[in-house]
Structure formats: structure tokens, C-alpha cells
Design a protein around this nucleic acid. Structure first.
Lengths: 348, 348
DNA sequence: TGTTAGCACTTAAATATCTGGAGTGCTAAA
DNA sequence: TTTAGCACTCCAGATATTTAAGTGCTAACA
């Protein structure tokens, strides 16, 4: 839906309504707007403007003779209106906060898990919304080292460390009678050949080898290579979520039904993971308001998400999830600043 | 508080009130008890009995002229009363369920994470309470293998696999210039010397070596040994919690304040971990009702917890956490059966 | 033509009032 | 010791009543 041309005063009224509603979730009246936001026309005029805005689908009344509340469209307009301002300027409070945060994050740069836990917790604590972080996708990192550990029978535990220091492990089936010796040489082979290479590249290389082996050589080797290939693939499932307790204090989630929705969202992480995976491809901070969400389950929420990077290569996403009646200005500032801070920390 | 002698009929009335309240959380009246539970005395008699029970602290009235509700003491009496019955007999429904569960669990016995996730999820799904599991304590398991991986600067990632196939990793500080070669031989040394030994034993052995080295020999070796010791110690923090969404559907948690409490409990896992650690030392299933809980934060809840073992050695705990108005019979049966099932699976 | 003052009208939310019913406690008789 | 009977209590739900916020509309005004 394209933006209709609104004259300056109408825009100001619209933003005033949105801001007032963000501050306090109650229908906003014309007189209140006039006085609080210093308009020097009388309330009837504001009333006319609000009526027009209702016709355009920016506002609605919960019932006749009540004040008006913003629609998703109004939030979208508002966000577009303040966006530039939000990512450019930072309040003194936030500036100081970010500074101290960056220091703390730097100390954790060698321990990804603590790093992202701290990030999501801080995000949530500072906004009272849910703070989320999708860890760097394994496929966007490079292999640091792999170890194969014989476990039981024909099982092998593959322990993979990437260049970010994230350790993953996977249980894979080998063949009966495989020895730790054999596994050691296999690991040596993989490490010497592939250390520092991207996972996808490695898997592809293994693939061509498998093909070759299959046609000309040993079936056993082909099997082992396949095992390696398996060991080096990880689906994305590392999503940190902090702040359930915080979000429960918002009036927007004061009724059980809404809380259940949130709980379900947190439980079914894969939806959020899918969403954030798509966002991690984006270049900039992304704001998804209510209805705009591709996933129906999330249409009662707003999401501010930003990729974080390592030298221009997007690794993952951090985000805030909150009510549509969100303090967008603050949320955008923060997510943006956090993403920058993380990017810096990771690019060092 | 010791049990007061109650005559048989009084006991029956008390249990009836508790069961009625468990079934439906509303004050229970004398006439209702009489009819529903087939007493062949008139309601006035029941009334007198209930009045006596109130004097003894088993029941209370939310207000004069209302029915009565059980106190924590009543729940405790009830649980003691039905306990033997609960762990001995099993309903057909549960029997069949446990059978199919055991089959499923057996398939996962090589993958502890999936095993315990499945366990807690099933526990919760079947009861609508929170299903919890504390993973086997590292110190109760033995070392299967350790690997030291040089990471950045003077950092080393220690990857430790225990005999349960649980992989843990830890970032430790070595000294600048340490090489992967050195780390490999160190790992070889530890593996050949300590594989199959209990972690505590290993750490102790290392401790005596450190002492010896410190006095007579190389400071460097002493430092390395210390590093090993560090690498082989893990504080307990693996607690699985499933079913937040389920528990939100109980009428007991229909108001926000109570939900917040639950959310806080889930967030501050260390309290639960502490509690379960102490329970894992017990030999049998343990039932903690409301007030009995050593931690104040949990006094609005009831907890049914049982250690699971490997050949008589207690490894960890599984548990149900729910409202005090819990279906104890069912909960006890289930936790007991699950623990047995796990014990079997792990002892194979 | 846009703005304003004024007023009737609408609606939800808060408050007060009433009523039925569930359940008790007590007493006196069996 | 149990029972029948009855007065009494208190909540919950239904029904009015009031209050306050806010609108929409009209007619006058700049």
C-alpha cells in the first residue's frame, strides 16, 4: 500500500496519536492531543483531522464515542517518519549504555555463548521486550578443527570447532569395527586439508571426491567421506531468547491468551529461526510490524531485527520482539547500536 | 508436625475433599462430599467432621459459610495415604504409555540430549505440568576422551566427552605460544592415563601431581596440569524444562502474577538445579508440597522428583513441577515409571 | 473555506442495589 | 453420636444508575 500524501499538520497529529498510545495504551482523544502536543487549533479541528485519518485507515475507534487507536498502518507510517532520526541520533543515556556494553562484549569475544547470552539479556533488560539472537550460521564460518571420537559400537561423535570458537557435536554412524586410530588419521586428513575453509566449500569438495571414489575406487573410502560430509553439516538451531519475565510486565500481555501466544512462539523456535534466517540476508536493520509478518503466528507482535556482521559478511541476527505498541524509536536505536557493537567485536 | 490419629471415616472425608478439590478447584461442601463419595451419613455429620478437620489444620474456608479447601497439610496427608498404592499399581493407560515410551527412549540412548528432551516433553504433555530433567552430573560419569584445541592467542578449547556421550567444552587460558602439537601430546597423555576413570578421581590425581611438580620440578608442567584440572571440572547447569505452554492452561495459573512466578522460576534455573542436586542424592522418589520446599520461591508449587540411576548409582533427576492442587496419584505414578524407564535405558 | 463554539448523543466503566443459592453453625430431638 | 431443621452469612451474578470521556454535527465566524 503506497503512502497517501498527508499535509504536515495531519502527519503531526498522526505521530502524536501514535506516540501517545505507545506511552499509554488507551484510546487517544482530540482534546488530549491538542493540549499535550501543543497544537494551537481547537479540539474540533483535531477531531476533523482524526476523522480523516480514520477514513484513510490510520486510526480506528474501539467503539463510537471513544478516542482513537493507531492501526498497523499508522505504526508503519510512524516508523518510516522517525526512522532516519532513530538510527542517526542517540540519546545520551543510550550512548553511555552502549559504550559500557561494548566494553563488556569485548571481554567475551572469545566465548560466543556468553557473548550472545549477555547480548540478549541486555537487550531485554533495557527495553523490557524479548531479546533474541541467532548465532552465526555454521555455513558462514570456517572450519577450525574437527575431531572424531569413537563412542559405542559403530557410533562416532564428531566434534567440530569453527573459527568463532563455537563447538558443535554430532553423533554419526560409521561402520562396525572402526578404530580410534583410523578416526584420528581421518581427522588429521580433514584438518590439514580443510582448516580455514568454509563449510560449504568443504562439503562440495567432499562431494566431488565421493563421486570419484564411487566410480573408480573404494566403497569404504566413499563411505567415510560421506560420514565427513554429514559431520560437517549443521542445521541452524541456536537461537537465544531472553526476557520472558520482563515481557510479562507489559500491559499488552496482561491477559493470559496473549501470554500463551508468546509462550508458544518461544516454544516453537523454528518459526523465529526461519524468519531470522531470511533477515540475516538483508543488509540493514529490518522492522516488521504486526500484519506485515510473513508468519501468521507473529502478527500480533512487532519485530526489530538487525544482522550483525564480520567484515561485511552477515553472520546472524539480533532482534527485539515486543508488542506492536512498541517504543520504536528506542528499540530501533538499541538494536542498531547493539548490532554495530557486535559487528565491531567480531571483526576485531 | 507429626500425624494426629484420625479415625477411618475422618480420613476418608479428608481424602474426598482433597480429591474433589484436585478435580475442580472450588470450595468443597459437605452435601457434595456426602453424595459424590457415597457416605451414608447425613451432611450434618460430614459437616461436623470437616469442622474438626479445620481445627486440626487440614482444611480452611475462604470465608464463613463457604465450602472448604485443603491446606498443604491436607495434601501431605493425602500423598502419604495414597503413596504406596501410587507407586505399586499402574492404570492400564499409563502402563501402555510407559511401554511405548520405553521403546522410544531406548532408540535415543546414544544421544543424551534428545533422550532428555523427549523425556521432559513427554512428562509435560502427559500431565500438563512442567517436565524437568537434570542431566547426569559430569562428576558421576567417567572420562571417555578429551581434546585440546588451540584457539586464539593463549586460549585453548577443551572438549570433553564422558561415557554417556555428553560433550562439554570449556575455554581455558594456557600460555602464549603453546602449540597444537603440545596440546595433542597432552591430550594423548590424559586419554591414555585417565580414560574410563571418574572425573573427581582424575582431578585428585592431577592435584597430587601438581603438588609434586610444584615442589620439585617444572613450573610449566605444573601450569599445564592445572589447566587439565580446570578443563575437567564442570559445574552443573544442564537442566531441561518443558511445558511452559501446557502449564499456562491450568486454572491455577490463570492469573498473571502466578505466571510471572513460574517464569521467574524457569529463568533462575540455579534454584531448581540446587534443589534437584540435593534430591539426586536421595534414593527414592521425593515429593515436596508447597510449604515444605526449602526454597521460598517454590512454596506455591508442588514437586515430584525422582533420581534416575545407572546400576544403582544415581546420575540425575527427573521431575514434575505443578500447582499444589496436583493430581498426585497420576504424577507420582508417571515420574516413578519414567525414572525406571530411564534407569533401564541407561543401565543397558 | 477552514475553524471554532456549543451541544446532543453514545458508550464503557465505575458504583450501587438486589436477589438467589450454596453452605455453614447451632440447637434440640432421636 | 447422629440427624433434622432453621437462621444466618456471604458470594456471585444480574440489574440499574451514575459518571466521565469523547465524538459528530450544526451553525456561526474569520
Amino acid at each position: 500500500m503506497k503512502d497517501i500524501m498527508l499535509d504536515e499538520r495531519t502527519k503531526r497529529v498522526l505521530c502524536a496519536v501514535v506516540e501517545s498510545y505507545i506511552e499509554k495504551p488507551e484510546p487517544v482523544g482530540s482534546r488530549y492531543i491538542m493540549k499535550k502536543y501543543g497544537f494551537d487549533v481547537c479540539s474540533a479541528t483535531i477531531r476533523n483531522i482524526m476523522s480523516d485519518l480514520e477514513d484513510e485507515g490510520f486510526l480506528f475507534q474501539p467503539h463510537t464515542s471513544a478516542g482513537r487507536m493507531p492501526t498497523d498502518r499508522a505504526y508503519r507510517f510512524y516508523v518510516n517518519y522517525i526512522f532516519q532520526e532513530s538510527i542517526r541520533s542517540q540519546s545520551e543515556e543510550i550512548k553511555r549504555y552502549i559504550e559500557s556494553l561494548t566494553k563488556r562484549l569485548r571481554k567475551l569475544r572469545n566465548d560466543m555463548n556468553s557473548l550472545f547470552l549477555e547480548t540478549t539479556q541486555s537487550l531485554s533488560q533495557f527495553t523490557k521486550y524479548l531479546g533474541l539472537a541467532l548465532l552465526p550460521e555454521t555455513d558462514k564460518t570456517t572450519l577450525h578443527r574437527v575431531d572424531f571420537i569413537k563412542f559405542r559400537d559403530d557410533l562416532v561423535i564428531a566434534v567440530v570447532v569453527n573459527d568463532k570458537g563455537i563447538v558443535k557435536n554430532k553423533i554419526i554412524k560409521a561402520y562396525p569395527g572402526i578404530t580410534q586410530q583410523e578416526l584420528n588419521s581421518l581427522a588429521d586428513f580433514v584438518n590439514s586439508k580443510y582448516q580455514g575453509k568454509a563449510f560449504e566449500e568443504i562439503r562440495e569438495d567432499l562431494f566431488t571426491r565421493i563421486k570419484r571414489e564411487k566410480i573408480f575406487w573404494d566403497k569404504l573410502i566413499s563411505k567415510i567421506l560421506k560420514m565427513c560430509q554429514q559431520a560437517l553439516y549443521f542445521s541452524r538451531e541456536d537461537l537465544y531468547i531472553s526476557g520472558l519475565y520482563n515481557i510479562m510486565h507489559l500491559p499488552d500481555f496482561s491477559d493470559i491468551e496473549k501470554l500463551r501466544e508468546i509462550a508458544k512462539t518461544i516454544q516453537d523456535r523454528h518459526i523465529l529461526i526461519k524468519l531470522f534466517e531470511s533477515i540475516s540476508e538483508e543488509d540493514e536493520i529490518k522492522i516488521i510490524i504486526g500484519d506485515e509478518n510473513p508468519f501468521e503466528e507473529l502478527r500480533n507482535l512487532s519485530i526489530i531485527a538487525s544482522p550483525y556482521k564480520e567484515k561485511d559478511k552477515s553472520l546472524g541476527v539480533i532482534a527485539l520482539v515486543g508488542p506492536k505498541r512498541m517504543d520504536y524509536q528506542r528499540a530501533i536505536m538499541l538494536v542498531n547500536a547493539f548490532a554495530k557493537s557486535l559487528t565491531e567485536t567480531l571483526s576485531e
